[in-house]
């Protein structure tokens, strides 16, 4: 294990040396992982970094070169994941249900700038047409778009007047802003539903997407994250930014608590 870690460190040093050298723009462009499509092809050993060949050791090198070479932390897990990928011959596929795209979006809510996270997953229609589908949203409560800062009570006698207070609760602006506080304490805010409702009502306006990162749960016992590195050297483009050891339960916990997916969504998924 120590030798493998040292090997990786040497490769990292090699990449750093290449980074310091003068690389023509077109060679950097060719070496860069320009798309997630290309990331998957290199991960699967179907395409190679321009410095590697198609042998087994080539696939190991290709996988190592998919890491951000300037980040030398967490080497043990990074190497262990490569070993697992090679032992289990793990492959990535666009149509896999085990990868997610998280888009960080700048939006405007009533002239106020907010940043929200939208989560997407690839799906296919019954007649096999590929598409992305929205599966989650986050940041509405943290940014105050949906105010959950206080609990409010509806009068215990309001039922006798056909809940006449609803008119004030909903139509008076000072009350409407805290309307979420009238819900049961047993009910969580479904941020995706809230997001959809606010978009459809015109209250949320999209400005731009400031970045996307991808979460892959495909490798047995590991989760890895892929982000875009804008650099001019042979280690750039879409690269693995983090590796997290995770068994089945931990992957479920990640989906529920990190990616904020709903429990019902997990039914039918297997790791």
């Amino acid at each position: 294990m120590r030798m493998r870690a040292l090997t990786l460190l040497m490769m990292v040093a090699m990449m750093a040396v290449q980074a310091l050298g003068q690389r023509p723009a077109d060679l950097s462009f060719q070496a860069s992982v320009k798309s997630i499509d290309e990331f998957m092809a290199r991960f699967n050993g179907q395409e190679h970094h321009l410095l590697n060949d198609a042998s087994q050791s080539g696939r190991r090198q290709d996988l190592l070169r998919l890491y951000d070479a300037l980040d030398t932390t967490n080497l043990v897990n990074k190497l262990a994941m490569v070993d697992t990928i090679l032992q289990r011959n793990t492959m990535l596929s666009y149509n896999s249900k085990m990868w997610y795209a998280e888009a960080s979006c700048k939006m405007t809510y009533h002239k106020r700038d907010v940043t929200l996270s939208l989560l997407f997953r690839t799906e296919q229609t019954p007649d096999k047409l590929d598409h992305w589908a929205l599966v989650g949203a986050d940041g509405l409560t943290a940014s105050g778009v949906v105010d959950i800062s206080q609990w409010l009570r509806i009068s215990p006698t309001d039922h006798e007047v056909n809940f006449m207070s609803l008119e004030s609760m909903i139509n008076i602006d000072k009350n409407r802003r805290h309307f979420a506080g009238y819900r049961s304490r047993d009910i969580d805010i479904d941020q995706l539903s809230a997001f959809i409702a606010l978009v459809q009502s015109g209250d949320l306006v999209f400005d731009y997407c400031q970045g996307v990162k991808y979460h892959f749960l495909n490798v047995p016992n590991f989760i890895f994250i892929v982000e875009n590195y804008f650099r001019e050297n042979t280690n750039s483009g879409w690269l693995i930014s983090d590796v997290i050891p995770a068994d089945r339960d931990q992957k479920e916990d990640y989906l529920l608590n990190t990616l904020k997916l709903k429990q019902w969504y997990l039914e039918g998924n297997s790791f």
């Binding site: 723009a25 077109d26 060719q30 290309e38």
Partner: peptide, 21 residues
């Protein structure tokens, strides 16, 4: 233009229609 153009896999999006990058 500098260097080669990369074209990703085609994805079917309708009858006789495809998208790629």
């Amino acid at each position: 233009q500098v260097g080669a153009v990369r074209v990703d896999n085609l994805r079917r999006v309708g009858e006789n229609r495809y998208e790629t990058m």
